[in-house]
Design a protein around this nucleic acid. Structure first.
Lengths: 210, 210
DNA sequence: TAGATTGTTAATCGATTAACAATC
DNA sequence: TAGATTGTTAATCGATTAACAATC
């Protein structure tokens, strides 16, 4: 019943609610929250309905309580352990990204073929790729981030899957083959930029010949 | 008529076609391409129909020609100039990302409040934020990347818009306010990870109580 | 020509929006 | 109670898929 968009919106509701709480609000109506999150009020109520979140028929929703419920649904009441493979430019940036730790996302270790690429820059160890499989199994890790070059991504993915990873965030610009019990999300920077470029160019052309 | 998903798929078709060409194919049918890109054959034909790409009713599509047409639609026959604002971990990684240059995406300059953050590491200059507005206007740049912390993002966005930027890739975890003639795409790492975590946890629960 | 594949129209599916009865 | 807002059902909208006539 819950679709992907619904859960993506849930993250947005959470962020908007944190902002509204910071502004001093203790209650919101679906209308307020919708405005803050940039969706319709019907969408908010529908999403909450799907997820079993309910408010008060005249009082709307208590901000604190609502944040708590959403956090629980998103699993933010627990810390989730990750491995990261590929400590190039992007991988390094992710290792140093301060937003993860406070958000319950903990990268326990990173891996690279060239494990001496960067030492001591963070307190997250960089281990040789051969240890990836054993590490995941030993620590029972379920989540992985792939930031290796495209030609290496599928192989890394296979190691992860075999070792028990169930969710992968993939930055390599290829479509990874995964069994259906593995959740995957792709971030393809080039595709994102191509999309922006297309629509800006399209608008340019439209403007010129109305 | 062309919707966002259609254009995102177009990038995928392009990538798949490059792979197929590398494998030695000179022609494809909608069926082949669909398989390679992970969509249905009807989807491929529909997308091509929308975009005015046409093949041969028995011979399918010529790979080279098709790649050429898609590249042109995506504007990949030209170089597009960008500015990047925010040279923290992520910004630095993007500046060093080798994939952009070969893909017609050229970051001309980067900006930061602290412009001495990193010198000489790439050949892309890092300039003080005060020069952003003038630089964009002087060079007539249409595209920007925002990789500053959330509290600074809206302000940077406003400078970009005022100076003439029409397309923005935003990594800051907030919803930027932009006029409707400005194209924006957001990449929110935390949201992506939350999504993965949610669906893996959901699958875990399902498995335990069938 | 006969057969295969496109290009397009119609059918289906799913997600969003609107409407309104339930109820605080 | 009267009024306002939720929660849910029905209507709408748009995107994907299926089907098939056109045609190479």
């Amino acid at each position: 019943m819950e679709n992907e968009n619904c859960i993506l919106r849930l993250s947005r509701y959470k962020n908007s609610l944190l902002k509204l709480r910071h502004l001093g609000l203790t209650r919101v109506f679906s209308e307020n929250l919708a405005d803050a999150a940039g969706v319709t009020a019907a969408q908010v109520r529908k999403d909450f309905s799907i997820l079993g979140i309910r408010g008060n028929r005249r009082g709307g929703y208590q901000v604190d309580q609502l944040i708590g419920q959403i956090r629980e649904i998103l699993g933010k009441d627990k810390v989730h352990n990750f491995v990261l493979v590929g400590t190039g430019n992007l991988g390094k940036a992710l290792l140093r990204y301060p937003g993860f730790e406070k958000s319950g996302i903990k990268i326990l270790a990173s891996f690279d073929i060239d494990s001496v690429k960067m030492e001591g820059q963070t307190n997250i160890p960089i281990l040789p790729l051969e240890e990836l499989d054993g590490y995941i199994q030993k620590k029972q890790i379920q989540f992985g981030i792939i930031s290796v070059p495209d030609f290496a991504a599928q192989q890394v993915c296979q190691i992860m899957i075999r070792a028990g990873i169930k969710g992968i965030l993939n930055f390599a610009p290829i479509r990874l083959q995964v069994p259906e019990d593995c959740v995957i999300r792709n971030i393809n920077l080039e595709t994102e930029l191509e999309n922006i470029i297309y629509f800006v160019n399209a608008a340019n052309k439209e403007g010129k010949q109305p």
